[in-house]
Design a binder for these strands. Structure first.
Length: 846
RNA sequence: GCCCGGGUGGCGGAAUGGCAGACGCUGAGGACUUAAAAUCCUCCGAGGAUUUUUCCUCAUGAGGGUUCGACUCCCUCCCCGGGCACCA
């Protein structure tokens, strides 16, 4: 016999990931394995990981995201899909500019350096991207289309300018979006820096135009997006149905009326005050008639100040003061006092409320503190009658009550009353039903250099004018003065600012604001479909083939902003006629973070595990395998340097196994053998491998349980080892079948190793055209099964029977089993539960 | 406060109503080796009975419920993580 028959693979493993990985990456590039084109004759699959912001070192947290995406891409390719799997760079943004200021260099140099580094690492890991489609958002070829879209929005009134109070971070020296202000008043990038307020002219995009669609279309995402992300978006949009009602101000000529917003117009007869937000424009005006105007104005001024800086709104004490004026309730002409209250927000609703203490907890607290009267207008249908004086907890139920003290509306249910009273207000002209939203328009202006210039010019004669399409892109000046202080860099670059008016040709001034980088990421995935188009942002035919994105993968951190803006952008593009779909992303997966020491990896915490280091130490395949194995993909993963050794050992084990048998199976024709003639040992092996294949397939396809898929493959490998020496009793063709399936199952996760093994098994052509194997039902079938026997629900024994054995036979065998007999003898069997091939439960009494 | 997740050995985790702890890490023992590394094999939730082979009890944050049977479904509570928050 030419073959060795020792089971010991004691020789040093020949597995050399550095060599293997370089070899196959080169092959893949040469053969253009991952390049794909739109082809309507083929089923498509668009899988995408959120594009990275290239900064710092690429760590294993990044890597996990891409490893998950790459498994999906590779599985889908093996499943016969035409797969689009691109990658690019979110290349504009503050860190580049800050770094440039610090190092006295250009943001482009810093950015391009980082991109080169990131790209090198991604290539080192062998992710199956179509690199021809790579985009970088800081290139004029990309951002000119930001400008193009902006102009389209400007034409349609979706982009506009307004003076607005903005959040100003003294450290960033820039305006922050509301959502970039965290922890009740701090900068999202500088958690120790308190945000200030300033009033500036800003550019906005009218996201609120699409409030309803953004909300309603969430229904289309159900099943495809995580429930909690849908919920977060719902809350963010914050739709609230109610009514606006005008209260006249008694005896004040120039003031009022005050418009309030309420969702409970049915309680309006119980209103005992009107309360204004400190920032309400009428508040100051009304004070003019106050008995002590100076004192009241001082209180107002103080309240206005503190309301901006509130750290902890929830625990803040409710405060307020009487303005000295009265409002008239349009329903019963009652005069009620007008107060200013610190718990009323100018940004929400109308900035004014009616206080109904009996039926709103906050109002109750406020009114009790200031001894305002409490009047019950809704009595519960069951239970004790409420009295205003004794009320401790507001009765805010609207289901089980009926109206009282409400004039003609007495006796109605709150539901009926809301409809009738809204209609009454409309008829009388003092109010109307209205729906309000928490969602704000999107402020996109940034007073920074490293972003897309907003393509607008200002002419003394012709006013504000859009830059004509033919003059796009408006490119950033190559040599800005970046100081990080004072006015924005573009404003202090004369060669950029000074231009000519597109209408009169006279001198004009350019807009110097640049766009929020969320603009870049709102539509980049469309550009991947047609990345080099210089006539349009993309060809609609290509996009309509690839879209929607079948699978988007990224962190939960982007659950609101990035995804909401992307959805908004899609709807705008649809209304421009560029795309046909309502939603860009069919399925979303939010993967967990990689942590070290219980916290997410970040440069500032100094706990990053560099991806490149890992590739050097263990190879890309081990790194990929470990991030997939250590935890299910949606959960956070604690990095363990000890545990990754296990993945390394496993891959070596597989390598040695196949290396040992490669000579014997190389010349054999794979997949062809006489299954009927299989020996016992062969049958056991074939059964195991096909059972594994069945379960791994389902873990990949429907459950995304990569960790348990890997566990199954490990188990299979252990099983094969246990059957060594395979030379004894396992024909080469059966060995080949087993080892090939093992290799194929590993291919999506450890593609380099799989290619190498595939070659060792005698395939010269590479895995490019190889399909995902189908499991063989016949071979997977067990002919003998072990049945668990319980007595009254407790396991007392197990019996071996041929698969499919009937109840009677199993009961007979079970009762012969010592452990079972011990617990069942002398007792009456009152019930038998029998699950074929699995379990028998004998319920006994006595 | 409200809304989502989650709580299983020393650790990461498996099990979607049917043998709790698969697989991996750590640890212990053995084989190989002059030795070490690597590799291969065995054991590894707790307690008790039985000197060996084995058997029993307890155990998936706590308590209750549904069920022949619950990590899994239902109710109450505790703890951890995340999101939202005077939203009228």
């Amino acid at each position: 016999m030419a073959e060795q028959t020792t089971t010991s693979a004691g020789t040093a493993s020949g597995y050399d990931p550095q060599k293997i990985e370089a070899k196959w990456q080169k092959r893949w590039a040469e053969e253009r394995m991952f390049e794909s084109e739109a082809d309507p004759s083929k089923p498509k699959y668009y899988v995408l990981e959120m594009l990275p912001y290239p900064s710092g070192t690429m760590h294993m947290g990044h890597m996990r995201n891409y490893a998950i995406g790459d498994v999906v891409a590779r599985v889908k390719r093996m499943r016969g899909f035409n797969v689009l799997h691109p990658m690019g760079w979110d290349a504009f943004g503050l860190p580049a500019e800050n770094a440039a200021i610090k190092n006295k260099t250009h943001p482009r140099i810093w950015t391009n350096h980082n991109i080169a580094q990131f790209q090198r690492v991604l290539r080192r890991f062998g992710f199956s991207y179509d690199w021809r489609r790579e985009i970088s958002t800081c290139e004029p070829g990309y951002y000119r289309w930001n400008q193009w879209f902006f102009l389209r929005m400007l034409e349609r009134g979706l982009a506009y300018r307004k003076k607005s109070l903005v959040n100003w971070c003294p450290k960033c020296q820039t305006v922050l979006a509301n959502e970039q202000v965290i922890n009740g008043g701090f900068c999202w990038r500088h958690e120790d820096t308190r945000v200030e307020s300033r009033e500036i002219e800003q550019w906005f995009l009218r996201t609120t135009t699409y409030s309803d669609q953004l909300l309603d279309d969430l229904k289309q995402l159900e099943g495809g997006w995580p429930e909690r992300v849908i919920l977060m978006q719902k809350n963010w949009i914050g739709k609230s149905q109610g009514a606006k009602v005008k209260f006249a101000v008694a005896g004040a000529a120039g003031a009022g009326p005050i418009e309030i917003f309420t969702t409970r117009i049915d309680t309006i007869y119980g209103a005992t005050a009107v309360i204004l937000a400190p920032a309400h424009p009428l508040a100051a005006k009304l004070l003019e008639g106050s008995p002590a105007p100076a004192e009241a104005e001082a209180r107002l001024a103080k309240m206005r100040q503190t309301s901006v800086k509130t750290e902890d709104l929830a625990t803040m004490e409710k405060e307020g003061f009487f303005t000295g004026r009265y409002a008239v309730n349009p329903f019963n002409d009652e005069k009620i006092p007008i107060w200013v209250g610190n718990f009323v927000l100018m940004e929400y609703g109308t900035g004014a409320i009616m206080a109904v203490p009996a039926h709103d907890q906050r109002d109750l607290e406020f009114c009790k503190k200031y001894k305002l009267s409490v009047r019950v207008v809704i009595q519960p249908l069951v239970g004790e009658e409420l009295s205003g004086e004794k009320l401790e907890t507001a009765f805010d139920e609207h289901l089980h009550g009926k109206l009282v003290n409400s004039g003609p509306f007495n006796g109605l249910s709150p539901e009926e009353a809301i409809a009738k009273m809204t209609a009454f207000a409309e008829q009388k002209g003092c109010g109307r039903g209205e729906t309000i939203y928490r969602l704000r328009d999107w402020g996109i202006s940034r007073q920074r250099y490293w972003g897309t210039p907003i393509p607008v010019v200002y002419c003394a004669k012709d006013g504000m004018l859009p830059v004509p399409d033919k003059d796009l892109p408006v490119v950033l000046p190559p040599n800005p003065k970046l100081t990080g202080e004072g006015q924005s860099p573009l404003a202090s670059t004369p060669e950029f600012v000074n231009t000519t008016c597109p209408k009169c040709g006279g001198p004009a001034r350019r807009e110097t604001d640049t766009m929020d980088t969320f603009v870049d990421s709102s539509w980049y995935f469309y550009r991947y479909c047609d990345p080099h188009n210089d006539k349009a942002p993309f060809d609609s035919a290509k996009v309509s083939y690839w879209f929607p994105i079948d699978q988007y993968i990224g962190g939960i951190t982007h659950a609101i902003l990035h995804l909401l803006y992307s959805r908004f952008w899609c709807k705008v593009m649809r209304d421009l006629g560029l795309v046909k779909h309502d939603e860009p992303i069919a399925r979303l997966f939010t993967q967990g973070m990689v942590q070290k020491g219980g916290v997410a990896m970040s440069k500032s915490r100094g706990n990053v595990v560099g991806a490149e280091e890992m590739a050097q130490k263990y190879g890309a395949d081990t790194g990929r395998l470990y991030t997939l194995f250590a935890a299910p993909p949606e959960k956070d993963l604690e990095w363990s340097e000890e545990s990754i050794e296990g993945s390394w050992r496993f891959l070596n084990r597989v390598y040695r196994l196949i290396e040992r048998h490669s000579q014997a199976v190389r010349g054999v024709k794979g997949g062809k053998f006489d299954a009927a003639a299989a020996s016992r040992k062969e049958k056991a092996l074939l059964r195991k491998v096909h059972q594994t294949l069945r379960r791994v397939t389902s873990d990949f396809e429907s459950r995304w349980h990569f960790n348990s898929a890997i566990a199954l493959i490990m188990e299979l490998t252990n099983d094969v080892y246990a059957q060594e020496p395979l030379e004894q009793g396992v024909r080469p063709e059966v060995r080949k079948e087993v080892l090939e399936l093992l290799t194929l199952m590993l291919a999506p996760m450890t593609p380099h190793l799989a290619e190498e093994l595939w070659e060792m098994l005698g395939h010269g052509e590479g895995m490019g055209k190889v399909s995902w194997p189908t499991f063989n039902q016949e071979l997977a079938r067990e002919d003998e099964v072990e049945i668990v026997v319980q007595v009254s629900g407790r396991v007392r024994g197990r019996v071996k029977v041929s698969a499919g054995a009937g109840e009677e036979e199993v009961v007979k065998l079970a009762l012969a089993e010592a452990g079972v007999a011990h617990h069942a003898d002398g007792k009456r069997i009152v019930k038998k539960i029998f699950v074929r091939d699995k379990l028998l439960n004998l319920v006994v009494s006595g």
